[in-house]
């Protein structure tokens, strides 16, 4: 199996590029803690609405400009509804679904995570810029999927 000189060179260059991509991704993920949301914790979907974790629905201040919120993603709404935080706040979202699979996306941020029934999803973001961000479900969840949205206002 003879490989042409230029092809060898190309495959080495191409592979190097891919390895560089992977290295950048690895440094971000494992050193800078910028990896994708990967929380592993289960919850019975049929008990989400009654569970203690999701009983206290509202933003909880846990530190200086740091908030936690437990949200239920259900057909076809996120509960609680619209949110408001001061500029510079870090918000830790905890999500679960009592019914089907949903997606949790906030526009203009990297917040994007699947909410699969049976599992608790967690994702955090620091809102440095003021504005009204759109929160929407980006996984088809039934015939009212396009109505599943609310907002988070940063001011």
């Amino acid at each position: 199996m003879r490989i042409h000189h230029y092809e060898k060179l190309w495959l080495i260059i191409g592979s190097l590029i891919l390895i560089i991509f992977l290295s950048i991704l690895a440094v971000q993920t494992f050193v800078l803690d910028m990896g994708p949301p990967s929380h592993a914790e289960t919850i019975d979907p049929q008990s989400v609405r009654e569970s203690e974790l999701f009983a206290n629905t509202g933003l909880q201040e846990v530190g200086d400009k740091e908030y936690e919120i437990a949200m239920i993603a259900e057909m076809f709404a996120f509960r609680p509804g619209d949110l408001e935080v001061p500029v510079g706040s870090t918000v830790h979202f905890t999500l679960a679904s009592p019914d089907v699979t949903h997606g949790f996306k906030i526009t203009d941020t990297n917040i994007n995570v699947m909410v699969v029934p049976g599992h608790i999803s967690k994702i955090s973001h620091t809102f440095d810029e003021s504005g009204e961000y759109l929160i929407l479900c980006n996984e088809y969840c039934g015939l009212g999927h396009e109505y599943m949205a609310n907002t988070i206002t940063v001011k």
Partner: peptide, 19 residues
């Protein structure tokens, strides 16, 4: 990649395999 219940390490292994 954005699913819960799969660890970051496992996901990275899958990313390498996808590459």
């Amino acid at each position: 990649i954005l699913d819960p219940g799969l660890s970051v390490e496992l996901k990275f292994l899958h990313v390498i395999q996808t590459f």
